[in-house]
């Protein structure tokens, strides 16, 4: 059974090394002998039903984000939401995360509607939240933590239908107020952490791969990999995060 990854707007939504997440998914599948394909999907292209097991989208600059917002609503949003309800996994970061919520409200101008995968909304904030982040998370794997770097001014608030990805112990997270970071709905994960996130959070990477396989009807657990280097990088990044705050 092979896995097909849909990389949403690879040209426009890739601002902080986001593509490293796709690299991590691909390598971790191939190292286990699981065939994997990546397809980029740009403006005006449609999401074919039952074609993708994992969706990925990164962050972009403001101008790109507005273009993408319109295109998501017009061409892809309903289909992506339906695929996730049917078991597809997703990882969306920063701007991608915001657009997968209910809406984004800027300081001035119109509300940008999202595609409603997460029960979450975002409002423009005064201050940029920038720095290393550590959050306790059930999806974190061995140490129960995720670690990454955040850089956003939008403040995201979760509704009842979406659980947070974790609770921050270092950094700001969703809004700098309630300690939540990210959102999870079924197999979809939204987060402000880039860095790239998946290489040094192998637990989260494998969660997405497992979901992707399950979607293909493969329910056996994943072959373990030698993650010595990954976990070492994870622990060092956590230590560095504590030190730089």
């Amino acid at each position: 059974m092979d896995i097909r990854i849909c990389y949403l707007y690879p040209e426009m939504m890739n601002i902080y090394g986001d593509r490293g997440n796709v690299t991590a998914l691909v390598r971790r599948c191939r190292w286990r002998g699981i065939p994997v394909d990546v397809e980029g999907l740009g403006l005006s292209e449609k999401v074919k039903p039952d074609r993708y097991d994992i969706f990925f989208m990164g962050g972009g600059q403001d101008r790109e984000q507005v273009l993408v917002c319109h295109d998501l609503l017009e061409n892809k949003g309903d289909a992506i939401r339906r695929e996730i309800e049917r078991g597809a996994a997703a990882l969306v970061i920063c701007g991608g995360y915001q657009l997968f919520g209910k809406y984004y409200r800027p300081f001035d101008g119109e509300k940008l509607p999202g595609i409603n995968v997460f029960d979450a909304y975002t409002v423009a904030g005064e201050n940029r939240m920038i720095g290393n982040v550590v959050a306790k998370s059930a999806l974190g794997g061995r140490f129960g933590t995720v670690v990454g770097f955040e850089n956003h001014s939008g403040k995201t608030y979760l509704g009842k239908e979406s659980a947070p990805l974790g609770m921050v112990t270092v950094g700001s997270g969703n809004n700098g107020e309630d300690r939540t970071e990210g959102a999870v709905h079924l197999g979809a994960v939204g987060t402000y952490l880039h860095g790239s996130l998946l290489p040094k959070n192998p637990g989260l990477a494998d969660f997405l791969i497992e979901r992707g396989l399950a979607r293909r009807g493969e329910r056996s657990s994943l072959k373990p990999l030698d993650d010595t280097l990954e976990w070492r990088a994870h622990r060092e990044a956590v230590a560095r995060a504590r030190k730089t705050h």
Partner: peptide, 15 residues
């Protein structure tokens, strides 16, 4: 390094 003068964020190495 990720000192202030380097930029704290090292995600760029993935680009």
């Amino acid at each position: 390094n990720d000192n202030i003068a380097d930029g704290r964020d090292v995600s760029w190495i993935w680009d």
